[in-house]
Design a protein around this nucleic acid. Structure first.
Lengths: 332, 332
DNA sequence: ATCGCTTGTGTAAACGTGTACACAAACATT
DNA sequence: AATGTTTGTGTACACGTTTACACAAGCGAT
């Protein structure tokens, strides 16, 4: 019986069935509106009986509020972002907001993808990806004045951003490695031109400079295990480095495997390897990575906080700064 | 200058600016509709100048077609599903369909979440999660007659399903392990009552039965590394098993680590460990897992195929069957 | 009994599109 | 020149809600 009704019933039809006007139907579904409690109960009963649910598309059109949130990410599977994505989706759902995923990694035209999402009148935009420029995002989503959360500290009245400071933790980590006697440092980037990558590299470069060192080599991967493995082989063999700072944890695991399998070198004695992100996998027994980690919960708390401020129509750009901490493992 | 316009312009306003009626605006944006090419060009120029884009919400309301797809998943980060999710999102985006993620794992009321999504008039529903019952999904989404893709072969005119057959591959794997002299087998489930878990266990149970064996022990985890680690310790220590078939690859990695670190046993000599899914991480050098794997690309091809059939309004339920293969690593 | 105030409901107009229908103009056919 | 067909455009309504406004009924105070 329940699965057999074909068409979705509308508020007008339900009104006829309940002997009221369609306005009253709407009121029955709006928490605080003037309606007799007897009427409301009767309407809700009839609605349940006929499987009526207000049409969110029509409501959005009328309200000028879609309750949709665009999540711009690099990729879904990528462990670096996945934990944050998961947390955020959970928090959004708890607030009755629905996330639309925009996946940049393998989409040919990222701008077109964002334009498509913008036609759906999303209420908020959260940019996790470092593959899109903030300026592009602002240009595309400016009309609805959504919030745009990002690492990149673009100053704009439409943009709220989260800033990350890992300089202190990077300093701690470099200190330990230098004291262990390592001399030739390499930085293995995840991309060759992203804002976040430059920032992270700078933390470590500054920490090195403070001690009279600088990077002896630099390589570029793509945040993947394979690229970490491949580039590490080159760095160790060609450049003879004895410490590799990686752009993320996954590449660090690849680099560690390369050192062990291809070169026969072990951490932390022969070589030091450092990751970044602090993903759960880094703490697995088989990895036990030393990594510059960010508290994911705090990060998502900050994102939600910014979204709430935007919902409450507090004006102006906002920014929250978070500091990273070192997670100590057996690789450095 | 581009970021300064506040309000989104409507088709009527653009009509005034271009000296036409709003109907003509609509026609300019509909690929094949009767409109003079000169008019169209002029309209598109004016539209670009003023940053006009048709409002997808209004269009959806009028069209009775939202181009939204609900993706019901367990979790986002979970590597078991992540690769498929990533592929599917990519394919959907290429077809100008926007995915809405429904994340079941930590949401208290999954049915309410699905009801929320259903009010957005999604065109299709893809269920990856084994945490929701198909019958519930059908009851909630029946009104719009969307496609529901799932492992669970529920017979219903609204449901299309993908069936998975891993019996042959399971047989191959058990054959190898038994020939290696292993005698006491354990099955480590990911959940204690999901349809897919029962199916997978049956493949291996049948292969064992064929050779006169049966599972000497059974344990229940939650698809996580930690649960794999913890349950494996118990299985090895208490139940003295020498082969563990795991519900997914992540638990298998946890089990392998437990064997090595806690019990000092190595694969494949002391103990055999088998995963399931065939995620990319299983092939990493540090894991090199033997696993019953599914071709992710073929799987998503099948999903997209079913969605296309539904779009083309071909009637009736559809089903596609895929067979798994064994990936041989050094753990069994 | 009159006046205010509250409560509950209906009417009608938005919200921004797509499209059936009508119609004029241009053009091809006899 | 009359007729039929194609092309391009405008008018008006539908899609399913929400909400400002109007209004009637109920109620307490004078």
């Amino acid at each position: 019986m329940s699965g057999m009704n074909r068409r979705r019933i509308t508020s007008k039809e339900l009104a006829k069935l309940a002997g009221v006007s369609s306005a009253t139907i709407s009121r029955a579904f709006s928490p605080d509106s003037r309606i007799g409690s007897a009427t409301r109960d009767r309407i809700l009963a009839v609605a349940r009986e006929h499987g009526y649910q207000p049409n969110a598309i029509a409501r959005s059109l009328n309200n000028q509020r879609s309750r949709l949130v665009a999540l711009v990410v690099n990729a879904i599977g990528n462990p670096c972002e996945a934990e944050e994505q998961q947390l955020l989706v959970h928090r959004l759902q708890a607030r009755q907001l629905l996330p639309i995923i925009l996946c940049c990694a393998d989409h040919s035209d990222r701008l077109q993808l964002m334009r498509l999402a913008s036609t759906y009148q999303v209420d908020h935009v959260v940019v996790f990806s470092d593959m899109v420029s903030m300026q592009d995002a602002v240009d595309i989503f400016h009309t609805t004045k959504p919030i745009i959360v990002s690492f990149e500290p673009l100053e704009n009245e439409n943009v709220s951003s989260i800033r990350i400071d890992g300089s202190a933790a990077a300093d701690e980590i470099i200190d330990k490695i230098a004291r262990d006697g390592k001399k030739r440092f390499a930085y293995l980037s995840g991309t060759n031109s992203s804002w976040i990558d430059k920032l992270r590299r700078k933390w470590f470069a500054d920490a090195l400079a403070k001690r009279g060192f600088s990077f002896a080599a630099q390589a570029f991967g793509d945040y993947s295990y394979d690229s970490g493995f491949k580039e590490a082989v080159l760095l160790l063999h060609r450049d003879k480095v004895d410490a590799i700072i990686c752009g993320n944890d996954v590449m660090a695991i690849g680099a560690r495997d390369a050192a062990r399998r291809v070169l026969g070198k072990n951490t932390p004695d022969d070589i030091a390897i450092v990751g970044q992100d602090g993903i759960a996998m880094a703490a697995w027994d088989c990895n036990d990575l030393t990594t510059l980690s960010l508290d994911h919960v705090a990060f998502i708390d900050a994102v939600v906080e910014l979204i709430e401020r935007h919902d409450a129509e507090i004006e102006g750009p906002h920014s929250i700064t978070l500091t990273c901490t070192a997670r100590w493992g057996s690789t450095a």
